[in-house]
Design a protein around this nucleic acid. Structure first.
Lengths: 141, 141
DNA sequence: GATAATAGGAGTGATATACTCTTATTGAAT
DNA sequence: ATTCAATAAGAGTATATCACTCCTATTATC
């Protein structure tokens, strides 16, 4: 199972393009050459907009532009606003699913992992990601 | 989104009961009082069996028993055999979904997180989890 | 006012999740 | 040997989630 969904992936690509522009960029331009369906990307951009990460402008020459510097946007921010919060287990968000929440020893350990995963995702900023050299030493292959 | 699925959760509960028994335990007993549908748990136990984590015996007084000590089973082992491997992004497991895999700067960072998440899950053994005091200092609330 | 863009919400097809059901097979007790 | 208690394997199913699309505003420029 993939932890990061396509929506989030698409959002990162769009934010990357926005980081390289200084004016408003339309969704169709953002989608261009990215294998992203434009009208789907529009829905994703709306979420980023509501979260205040980007700013929108309607009408001709409208589109989106960054509202926050890439260095101040973390991977966790994008994940949470686009696909919703990540939790280790369902019981963290819906306690009713399990009635042994309060004394569950597994839960204690998962809570620790949860904190750490979020912290790691929050350490990575888009500024850092965008400035990285394109797979220099073949790191991710 | 929850990273750990119910199947895995159910598996951990069953393994916990097995750790407290020294003979074969039937699926119906394993499911007892755990809010787990017995015939669903049976399917999960079959996967643990195929992975060699437990041993099965058919016939009367049959059931399952541990085949590996709880200290030698990690949370990662359970996750991977029950719900399949965890990956940060789809492109780690199906490169065709994205043709910029080779030069993607996001992927490099995700690969690092991936390694770390797996390492953390592999650090937690069932032995450790089971021996933990039931929510001593209210850690997970 | 026409045109070019986004906003919001409802709708859809495919896949995955969380199960159930049916038909073997195996093993212990009688 | 027969019966009965258990698992094995695989097909089947309902619901939810994912990955989108469509339609009807609204807003801003020319």
């Amino acid at each position: 199972m993939a932890i990061i969904k396509r929506e989030t992936d698409y959002a990162v690509r769009a934010l990357r393009k926005l980081a390289g522009a200084d004016d408003f960029v339309s969704v169709s331009v953002l989608a261009e050459g990215e294998d992203v369906p434009a009208i789907f990307l529009r829905k994703i951009m709306q979420r980023l907009n509501r979260a205040g990460m980007v700013q929108s402008r309607q009408g001709p020459f409208g589109g989106y532009r960054l509202n926050v510097a890439p260095e101040d946007i973390t991977l966790l921010d994008v994940v949470e606003t686009v696909q919703g919060p990540l939790v280790m287990n369902e019981c963290f968000v819906e306690p009713e699913v399990c009635r042994r929440t309060e004394f569950c020893p597994v839960r204690v350990r998962l809570a620790e992992l949860q904190v750490e995963l979020n912290a790691r995702l929050a350490e990575v900023t888009l500024g850092e990601v965008f400035s990285a050299e394109p797979a220099g030493e073949g790191a991710a292959r």
